[in-house]
Amino acid sequence: MISGTAGQLQNGPASSGAALGRKLGYGLLYIILILVAVLQVLPLVWLLFFSLKNNQEVFNLPPFSLPMDPKWANYSKVWSAGNINVYFLNSVWVTVLATALTVILASLVTYAVTRMKWKGSSFVLGLFMVAMMIPVHSTLIPLFSVYNKIGLTDHPLSLIFSYVAFNMPITIMILLGFYYALPREVEEAAVIDGCSVNRMFAQIVFPMTSSVLATTAIINMIYNWNEFIFVNTFISSDIYKTLTVGVQNFIGQYTTDWGAIGATLMISILPILITFLFLSDKIVEGIAAGSVKG
């Protein structure tokens, strides 16, 4: 009895000290995370204030100071007079179409490589993985030459083909772990019931991968929406330009409308920001699901 009481007295301070250490550790972690979150939000706050100022306020006031007279007209000006409405719609449909094609084609390739036995599957997968190491800038001249010969320069298809080609490797890499982890018993049962390969993929495998598909779709959307190099190289007509290139309309030889540029950047950020806020849990779920094999 005495020895048991002594043991409790010895364990009591140790356990309370460990609990206190855990609380301090969590408190320090939360403080660090809050500071990181604030640092992430500050550029958005600065851009919002920037978009509501005129040129004089941009250069004469501190960066995070509120504008003396908020210029909400900057948003209406860039939307109508600056053709941002056209650029915005171009960004939307090009991004959606390229993302959908990339996700579907990458799913087909990954299914064929991981779930079907055929000669050369490892070689094909290796080719896609090697493509990840090719710098984008090194392909601009060859791609421009090819598109020029087949009549796709200054055409939205040049953007869609380029986005799909360069996003396929990273999309396949994300899908690989999830497809390897799929139980083969489901496919075997479907084959016994007389299910064809095409039907098995469309009705069984493809729906089972919805979480990781959401992850790849969001990653593709962010890349396609923010892409600048291909648009600036292949597109010259205003009717096909996207938001990333359209911001240059407010940069003149002698004067630059900085408030309009800020408003354009704010408009371009909002769709991706809203999408990420609503679907961020899908990104974590998809990455976690694709990181475990077996």
Rank of each mutant, 00 (worst) to 15 (best):
M1Q: 11
T5S: 10
T5V: 15
A6M: 15
G7K: 14
Q10N: 13
G12C: 08
P13C: 13
S16T: 11
Y26V: 15
Q40K: 07
L44K: 03
F50K: 07
S51M: 05
L52Y: 06
N54Y: 04
N55M: 02
F59H: 08
L61S: 15
F64N: 08
P67F: 01
N74G: 00
S76R: 12
V78L: 09
S80P: 01
N85F: 06
A98Q: 01
T99S: 09
T102C: 11
V103A: 12
A106R: 03
S107Y: 07
Y111M: 01
Y111W: 11
A112L: 09
A112C: 13
K117Y: 09
K119M: 11
G120W: 01
S122N: 14
F123E: 09
I134W: 03
H137I: 13
T139D: 06
I141A: 10
I141E: 09
F144D: 04
Y147H: 05
G151K: 05
T153G: 00
H155G: 02
L159H: 05
F161E: 03
M168H: 00
M173D: 08
L175F: 08
G177S: 04
Y180N: 14
P183V: 00
R184I: 10
R184Y: 10
G194E: 01
G194V: 02
G194K: 04
F201V: 01
F201H: 05
Q203P: 07
I204G: 05
I204L: 11
V205R: 02
T209N: 02
S210F: 13
T216L: 09
N220P: 01
W225L: 04
E227W: 03
F230Q: 10
I235V: 11
I239N: 14
K241H: 02
G246H: 05
G252K: 00
T256F: 05
A263E: 04
T264V: 15
M266Q: 06
I267K: 02
T275S: 14
I283C: 07
V284S: 10
